[in-house]
Every structure is written in structure tokens, then in C-alpha cells.
Write a protein that binds this DNA or RNA. Structure first.
Lengths: 120, 120
DNA sequence: CCTGTACTTTCCACCTCAGTTAATTATCCA
DNA sequence: TGGATAATTAACTGAGGTGGAAAGTACAGG
């Protein structure tokens, strides 16, 4: 049962993506690797803040780092994004079938029975 | 320029998805609408906690609610998941092209020039 | 060795999030 | 009207995210 492990990884990935700053960093890295200063340049916040954002992305497996002199260039690893896509695609049938599930449920919710109760 | 609005919505969606409890709730709702008590049943936490998780999902536009007597049944709205999928799919070329972007960058990072510096 | 460059780490303040218990609201039914 | 059921709200706690300032680390070059 590694379901929990996968679940945790997905949670960490989503948490990392729940920041437009971090998503911007990923977008920048999609065009090629970059140093921390290069990544920080478009933003108003200070370098330590960017450094921490990068660390979050790194922990989520979205960014790989190297070392060259003082530089610690970052590169995108999009593998977790494939997992995100796969996860979301599970729901494609739901968003494509736009019939109203709420009405569906309300129909099954009888006036004289509580939901989940099997007529006993 | 509604870029910020879209960005915020995506952030809210990702934040909502960054919880395995909430993702479980969505999975349950994919099988059909359910009441709060039905949704809470598989979990060990108390009802108010579930109620708050549902509110997060609702604010993210992933859950729609109705009312029937005391019941406030929840239904899945997968539309934001389509946005998630579309966003992630942007990176498909990156995760499919598995050449090493780090090496690519290190090649361009010359020993005698700092990155981003144009030989001045 | 000393200075500049490129980060990272530490410490701090602020705020949000997650969960609890207890109280409250809303509705049904006898 | 009163009790049971469904669910939310309020008040509180503890944990964790986010940013800044300041100090620390690591490497290059004169």
C-alpha cells in the first residue's frame, strides 16, 4: 500500500504549484535552466524569498539543481507535472458530461428516506 | 489583463487540491452527489473539519451545493480540473523530451563569463 | 589574503490552515 | 411545542507558509 506515499507526493506537488510566483519560475525554466539571480530578476521580492520558493519546488521534485562555481543553476523536471495531468485527466469524463449531477442526486434523495439509508 | 485573476483562480484550485482529504472527497463526488455526513463517513476527523474542507472546495469552484430539508448535498464541478489539466499539458513537451536541460545550460555557462552577462 | 559575487541560512513577525469542542441554526416529525 | 437530525459557526490551539533583514558560506580573481 504505497497509496499514502503517492498521495503525499501529489499533495506536495499541488502545494508547490499553489503559488503564482512558483508557477512563473517553472514557466521561466521551461525555456531553459537559469541561476537564482536570473530567476529572481522579474520579481519584486528579495533573493532569500526566491531561494525559498526554489527550495519548495526542489522538494516537490519539480526543479533539479547543479553547481558551477558560485552558481547553483536550476533546471525544470516536469515529471511531477505528468502525474498532475494524469490525475486531472481522471475527471475528464466528468467535466465533459455536463449533465447536472446535483439534480441526479436530488432525484434519488427521497422525501421519506434519509440519504444512505437502504429502506430498512 | 485578467492574467492575475486567472492566476489567482489557479492558485486557489491547486491549494484546494493540495490535501489528500479533499482529493478523496472529490473522488467520492465523482461517483455522485453526497451529503456532508456521507462525505465525512470514511474519515476519522470530526464533522466541522469536513465542513471546512468542503468550503475550501466550494470556494475553489470544485463543489456546488444545494439544499434539501436539513441536507446540503454536494456535487462535483470538474471545470477547474480541466484548467488544471490544460495548464499541466503545457509542459508535456518538456516531460516527453527527456534530454538533459541541465547539461544544456552548463554548456552555455562559459568558464569566463557570468550567466546573463553579454561580454561587456 | 581580501574583496566581490552568488547564494543560503537563521531569526523574526505575520498570517493562514487544520483540527478540536461547544454552541447555534435549520428542518423534519411526532 | 419539543426532540432528533444535519450541518454550520465561533472560539481556540498548534503547525506551517511567506516575507524581510542580517549574518554566514562558497567560490573566483586580483
Amino acid at each position: 500500500m504505497t497509496a499514502t506515499v503517492d498521495d503525499d507526493r501529489l499533495s506536495e506537488t499541488f502545494a508547490a504549484l499553489a503559488s503564482s510566483t512558483r508557477r512563473s519560475i517553472l514557466a521561466r525554466l521551461a525555456e531553459g535552466a537559469a541561476t537564482v539571480n536570473e530567476l529572481a530578476e522579474p520579481f519584486e521580492m528579495k533573493l532569500p524569498a526566491i531561494s525559498k520558493h526554489i527550495k519548495v519546488l526542489e522538494r516537490a521534485g519539480l526543479v533539479m539543481r547543479s553547481q558551477r562555481a558560485q552558481y547553483r543553476p536550476c533546471a525544470l523536471d516536469a515529471a511531477p507535472l505528468e502525474e498532475v495531468s494524469t490525475w486531472a485527466e481522471q475527471y475528464r469524463p466528468v467535466w465533459e458530461a455536463r449533465f447536472d449531477r446535483m439534480d441526479d442526486y436530488l432525484t434519488r434523495l427521497q422525501p421519506h428516506g434519509r440519504p444512505g439509508e437502504h429502506d430498512g
